[in-house]
C-alpha cells in the first residue's frame, strides 16, 4: 500500500496535476461537493425530510446576508420552510448516487460489449456497432425518457415508486453505454493485433482470458477519461429527467427536482430556491468535467 502511494506521488500523473491550478481548483470544488453530499446527514444544518422540524413560519426566508434573512438558514428556505442549503446537500447525494451508479453501469456494459466486439469481430461486432450507431443518432436524454416511459407503462404504480431510482439509473446508463463501447472497441482493435496478444495466442491462451488479462488493462486508460466526463453528463441527465418530472421519486428530491420546484417561485421573487441548487449543479458538473479534461490530456502521450 505504502509502495503504491509512493509510486502515485512520484508519477507523471500527480506531477501534471500539481502543475495545473485549474485542475487543483476543480478537484477542491469536486471534493467539497462530494464530501458535502456523502456526509449530508451528519453535517447538514437541518434535516429537510424531518417533518417535525419543519415550520411553515420559516417559509420563503431569503438568504442570510439579505435584510430579511435568518442566520439559521444561510441560503434561505423554500415554500415548505426547508433549509435550501440542507436540501442541496441531500439533493446532491441523490444526484451523485444516480450519476455514479449510471456511469458505473454504462461503463461495465460498454466496456464488456466493446471488448467483445473489438476482439471477436465479425457478426457480433457488426451487430453491436450498428446498435451503437442507431442509439447515437438519438440524444441520450431521449433514450432515457423512452426507457423510463416504457418501464412506467409496464410496471404498476406502487412497484414503480419503489424502484424508481433504479429505473432512472438504468435509463441513464443504457443511454450512454455506446460511448464506452466505441472507445473500448477502437483501442481493442489496436491492441488485438499487437504481438504480445499473438504471443498469448501462440500458446493457446483462451480468448476470454486474453481479453480480460491482456487487452483490458491496456484499453482501460481512455475509459477512465470517458467515465469522468460522462459522470458530469449523467448528473445532468438525471437533473433534466427530474426537472421534467420523470426522474427520481419526489420523496427523494435531487438537485433537478429542487430546481423544478424552485422554478415556480422564480417570477414571484423567491429566486434563491432555484438559483442555489442550479449553482451547485453547475459547480459539480463543471468541476468533474474539468477534471476529466485534465485526465484526458495527462493520459495522452502525444500532448505530453
Amino acid at each position: 500500500m505504502a509502495e503504491t502511494l509512493r509510486r502515485f506521488f512520484d508519477s507523471d500523473l500527480w506531477f501534471s496535476f500539481t502543475r495545473s491550478p485549474v485542475t487543483v481548483l476543480s478537484a477542491i470544488v469536486a471534493a467539497i461537493c462530494i464530501l458535502g453530499a456523502v456526509f449530508a446527514p451528519w453535517i447538514a444544518p437541518h434535516n429537510p425530510f424531518d417533518l417535525a422540524s419543519l415550520n411553515l413560519i420559516d417559509a420563503f426566508k431569503p438568504p442570510a446576508w439579505t435584510e430579511e434573512g435568518a442566520r439559521d438558514y444561510v441560503l434561505g428556505t423554500d415554500d415548505q420552510g426547508r433549509d435550501v442549503l440542507s436540501a442541496i446537500m441531500y439533493g446532491a447525494r441523490v444526484s451523485l448516487l444516480v450519476g455514479i451508479s449510471a456511469t458505473v453501469f454504462a461503463t461495465l456494459l460498454g466496456v464488456s460489449l466493446g471488448l467483445l466486439a473489438g476482439y471477436v469481430g465479425g457478426a457480433i461486432d457488426s451487430l453491436l456497432m450498428r446498435i451503437c450507431d442507431i442509439q447515437l443518432t438519438f440524444p441520450s436524454i431521449l433514450v432515457a425518457l423512452l426507457v423510463d416511459g416504457v418501464v412506467r407503462a409496464v410496471l404498476p404504480r406502487e412497484v414503480h415508486a419503489d424502484i424508481a431510482l433504479f429505473v432512472v439509473i438504468f435509463a441513464i446508463g443504457i443511454s450512454e453505454w455506446p460511448k464506452f463501447a466505441r472507445t473500448v472497441r477502437g483501442s481493442t482493435l489496436v491492441e488485438r493485433n499487437k504481438e504480445y496478444v499473438q504471443a498469448a495466442r501462440v500458446i493457446g491462451v483462451p480468448k476470454a482470458r486474453i481479453m480480460v488479462s491482456h487487452v483490458l488493462p491496456n484499453v482501460i486508460g481512455p475509459v477512465l477519461v470517458v467515465a469522468t466526463l460522462n459522470l458530469g453528463l449523467a448528473i445532468l441527465s438525471e437533473a433534466t429527467l427530474s426537472f421534467l418530472g420523470v426522474g427520481v421519486p419526489p420523496t427523494q428530491p435531487s438537485l433537478g427536482t429542487l430546481i423544478r420546484i424552485g422554478n415556480d417561485f422564480l417570477f414571484s421573487g423567491e429566486w434563491w430556491i432555484t438559483i442555489f441548487p442550479g449553482v451547485a449543479l453547475i459547480a459539480m458538473v463543471l468541476s468533474v468535467n474539468l477534471l476529466g479534461d485534465w485526465l484526458r490530456d495527462a493520459l495522452n502521450p502525444k500532448l505530453r
Binding site: E195, Y196, V202, H214
Partner: peptide, 30 residues
C-alpha cells in the same frame, strides 16, 4: 496443447511483443 508447447515464436517488435502492464516474471511465466 502438446504441439503448441513444443513450438514458440519470437516477434519483430520488442516494444509491442511484451504486455506493458505485466511484470517481466509474469510475462516469462505465462
Amino acid at each position: 496443447a502438446d504441439q503448441r508447447r513444443r513450438m514458440q515464436m519470437i516477434f519483430q517488435d520488442p516494444y509491442a511483443s511484451l504486455n506493458p502492464r505485466w511484470r517481466v516474471k509474469h510475462i516469462v511465466a505465462e
